[in-house]
Amino acid sequence: MKREEYLIFILEIAGSALIGFFIGSLLLLVLGFDPLKSFSSLIIGGLYDLDYLLSEATFVMLTGLAFSIPAMASVFNIGGEGQVYLGALASLIVAHHTGNILLSVLIGVSVGALVGGLMGILKVYKGVNEVITAIMLNWIFYYITLYLITNIYYNPLAPYESIRVPKSSRIGYIDTPLGRIHLIFFISIITCIITYIVLYNTKIGYSIRVSGLSYKSAEYAGFNPSKNVVYSLVMGGVFGGLSGALKVVGFSYSIDTTMSSLYGIGFDGIGVALLGRNNPLGIIFSSIFYSMLIVGGHIMQIELNAPKELVDTLIGTLIIALSLPYAYRIILSKFKIMRMVRRF
């Protein structure tokens, strides 16, 4: 049974990716681009610079966790965007005032946790749907951040970005045989591993998973499923805040005034989480794949003048394709592939 499940799992991901690329090709053709050239530019461009690839992967890895962990408790955290903005903003401000790395990151993370907690409390104790709170908060934090970096924390020497993070509070990179790699990548990998261990080897992780799969069973077992919902959202907020904090303190060292460096990380995290099937270890791989798409998209734009939003289109299609678990089972059973799978 387990082996069959693995194969279906892989088929699902491969199938979704294929659909995504297929539709993407159609769109490219319609717009007058050569799909093969575009995709090769995408993939090669994506993989060319390892450091860039892994760094971009870091942020969506963390927002992937931000979506996955609440998803384990059957809650949808699409507030990753807002958590990223606020985490970035908070850590920027703290770094500016204190110059301390640890404090900046900690505050960034705590702010994210508060946001998650707010969403959780509103959901559990007031019954407000978390999708609505998330989107509203996303926009509120977007504008708060925008206001602050253009009016108070702006950089007088460079009008297109905020103040820079002081050198003392920057997280740098290390030199490896494969070249220079930003430290933040390793931080996120460790975070994923720790999360996996917590989720599958601790009582609280188990309790959250039970709450997500069967609320009444969790109650029966003496767990407190409502509190677990809040905890999972707090954790989600922590990851979101961490992603924003690391971006500011460990990569771009400032926030640009168009917010383009922060925009979309939260939503991309959703795709990463789905592709990684909500498994922290799977997310490590799916985030690298995703990063390839994003980075490759930039390259594709430069080389072929194809708009990088095309990648958004691909990603959107991928997510829709990933919402169809049963579709694959239905299709598979119809084509009797199941029989083949069983023989393995």
Binding site: L27, L31, F76, I78, V131, F267, I270, G271, L274, P307, E309, L310, V311, D312, T313, L314, I315, G316, T317, L318, I319, I320, A321, L322, S323, L324, P325, Y326, A327
Partner: peptide, 21 residues
């Protein structure tokens, strides 16, 4: 029988990208 919430999220992202393109 797809997940309605996720499909909706995907649609939003797709719309944003496709209309920009």
């Amino acid at each position: 029988r797809g997940d309605q919430i996720i499909a909706g999220i995907g649609l939003n992202i797709l719309a944003y990208g496709a209309t920009a393109v």
